[in-house]
Design a protein around this nucleic acid. Structure first.
Lengths: 235, 235
DNA sequence: TGATCTTTTGTACGATAGTACAAATCACAT
DNA sequence: ATGTGATTTGTACTATCGTACAAAAGATCA
């Protein structure tokens, strides 16, 4: 009854396709898309360049598959956590739980396949900065639903804040999130060793605390939008 | 007395060196370093590829010169604004002025050479995401002083907040700032057209307001750092 | 004008990129 | 054991990359 694994599950090397995906994810996330060659990926995965073509056809196809791998599970986890957060009674606690539902899946370590993961979040950050076309399409398709759900949930907790302000603040949240994963050593450097930018738990707590406060800030005065002008010199 | 300009100031094409710098800045900022070829830059500047080699020796040298152009004036402007902000009497107003001193120079339009500028800030964001080595060195050398001055100023306005928290929150500020310049259209999309992500003045007001609130958030409980753990599943 | 220096052009070289494809190799059912 | 389909390897093709360099063109001043 100890069924031997079929060749579809384990090839010569134990699942070379998976090794290529993992290597590509790591390399893309740290160096960007264009700086990494197919040969680099193959080498890091202990595979032959031809294998990459065989499994994913093109380099774009490889990136596409990385997104496909993660998007589903990550959004699932987020919506579960968001649903749970919505049920929190206390309004202050609920807002914090909502923010946490957004942040935590993005930070969980790279080893768990079905939770998002820091490596994949960092990959998204880098692709967004590079203006990668393949990524841009998937992101808009896959993540806008999640973002809207998040914004709606925050808006429910803070009905007196205009939706526009909440959009901006959640945009800032994502930017801070991305940057924390892209350049964690900067935190260590600027704090002169007092804080560790690579400590996910610490980063999450700091980010959640700061974001909750930002969301709770008074609404921007939108009655006189012309009043905003003088602050910025030119544009 | 109408001195004719010497050849150092205006070449055949009116200052081709400047045109190359501008084209490179624009292309690097929107596509990343590796995705842009020297030939792309030359073409965009109406120049010959050889001219780029002549003026800047290497592609890295070109990037280096872009940084050299901007870092000095940008930090000067920031420290001027910061000095002025420090003199604000009211503590709440002072904090806001300090944040504004940090944010405004980063957002000013690309046409002004000596103020930093949105294009250059966006360039820095993209280089940081790509992990560009040339940029990383300059950044650490040039911007850490400014960052420390900023952190110190904020810390003076909020003496009861531990420095570590302020470092984290100013790190989030920079991430939000970068992301707002990298993906402004996301704000327009998520707000369903109600907000314009490309409107610098609006972005500044939103960012300043949110950041001031984040800085003013209560300090993280650091007496029991072990208590933080259970929130994040794995790492 | 002619000599000299600066800048631009045109072209070429070696390295590396993404990808295609035939041959070799493997797992497995018969 | 052998045939079959899936995978891996090795290699090669074409395109493009950064950069070098000689020749052309322009500017400057005796």
């Amino acid at each position: 009854m100890v069924r031997k694994p079929t060749s579809n599950e384990t090839a010569r090397k134990p699942n070379m396709r998976e090794a290529i995906l993992a290597a590509a994810e790591e390399l893309f996330a740290t160096n960007g898309f264009n700086a990494v060659s197919v040969r680099d990926i193959a080498h890091a995965a202990g595979a032959n360049p031809g294998s990459v073509t065989y499994h994913f056809k093109t380099k774009d196809g490889l990136l596409l598959e990385i997104y496909r791998r993660h998007c589903g599970p990550m959004n699932l986890r987020r919506s579960e956590l968001l649903a749970a957060a919505r049920r929190v009674r206390d309004l202050q606690d609920r807002l914090e739980a909502i923010v946490r539902a957004y942040v935590v899946p993005a930070f969980t370590s790279g080893s768990d396949l079905a939770g998002g993961g820091a490596r994949f979040t960092r990959l998204r950050a880098v692709m967004s900065a590079e203006g990668n076309e393949v990524a841009r399409k998937i992101i808009a398709q896959t993540f806008d639903d999640t973002s809207h759900a998040f914004i709606d949930a925050v808006h429910e907790s803070l009905p007196h804040i205009p939706r526009t302000d909440i959009v901006w603040r959640s945009h800032f949240l994502l930017g801070a999130l991305y940057y924390s994963l892209v350049t964690p050593e900067r935190v260590s450097r600027l704090s002169r060793g007092e804080a560790d930018g690579s400590d996910a738990a610490g980063a999450i707590e700091q980010l959640v605390q700061a974001t909750v406060a930002a969301f709770q800030a008074p609404a921007l005065d939108q009655a006189a939008p012309a009043r905003r002008r003088p602050a910025v010199s030119k544009t």
